[in-house]
Simulated assay, not measured.
Amino acid sequence: MLVLLAFIIIFHITSAALLFVATIDNAWWVGEDFYADVWRVCTNGTNCTEIGDHFEGYATLQAVQATMILSTTLCCIAFFIFLLQLFRLKQGARFVLTSIIQLLSCLCVMIAAAIYTDRRQDLHDNNPRYYSLTSEGRYGYAFILAWVAFAFTFISGIMYLILRKRK
């Protein structure tokens, strides 16, 4: 049982780490001379411009930002609630509250990645300042990590739903 508990804790911490990296790192859309995420666009590795009101589609990026932050926050809250339930739940009870919060985290990261996937072309093509750079790019590793974090948080949420407290 102790090995299972250690695996679940490590899996949850890995999920949270993936969410932090995907949220913070500047590699959602990359090319030869630029990289971009939901926070800024950088050219030549040093010229970084914060994405603000001047950016076409800023409201869409704000939705992605908000859901990624919410997902990361919910994942951390779920971990602390799991630790509390580990000591407070009666024997045989399920970790339902932890599961619900983790599945909400999963839903938020899925929404963020799906919005970015759907609107990525509109975001970069409607901004003439960046169009010449960003039109020839590909999804970066932070974007891929967001989808991997989705899978991890989903599996983690299901594990908590199935898991019962034992001695």
Rank of each mutant, 00 (worst) to 15 (best):
F150T: 03
E32V: 10
Q62C: 12
F80P: 11
F152E: 03
D37R: 08
A22C: 11
R129V: 15
Q102I: 07
I51M: 06
I115D: 04
H124A: 09
A146K: 09
C75G: 08
E32T: 13
F95G: 03
M68D: 00
A17H: 00
M68T: 09
F154L: 15
L123I: 15
L83G: 09
I24G: 00
I9P: 03
Y116I: 07
R164I: 06
D53K: 02
L19K: 00
L97Y: 09
D25Y: 10
F34R: 05
W28A: 01
H12N: 07
I144V: 09
A151I: 12
A78M: 02
V38W: 08
Q65Y: 11
G157Q: 03
G140I: 04
L61I: 15
V3I: 12
F154T: 10
F154V: 08
V30A: 13
A63N: 13
C108T: 15
A27P: 13
L89A: 03
R166M: 08
I10N: 05
V41R: 01
F80Q: 00
A146P: 06
R166D: 08
A22Q: 04
A59V: 09
F11Y: 11
E32F: 02
L97D: 07
F80D: 10
N44C: 05
I115N: 02
E136P: 00
V3L: 15
C106Q: 10
S105T: 00
K165M: 11
R164T: 09
L123E: 12
S156N: 05
W28L: 05
W29I: 01
A93E: 15
L84S: 05
M159H: 04
I158S: 06
C106M: 08
R94K: 12
T49C: 12
F20W: 05
V30Y: 00
C76Q: 11
A151H: 00
G52V: 06
I100G: 06
L107D: 01
T43F: 02
T72Q: 05
T117G: 14
V30N: 01
T98D: 14
A22G: 13
M159F: 13
S105A: 04
L2A: 14
S99V: 08
L74P: 04
A22R: 06
C76Y: 04
I77N: 05
H54T: 13
A112N: 04
R40N: 10
G45F: 07
F7K: 00
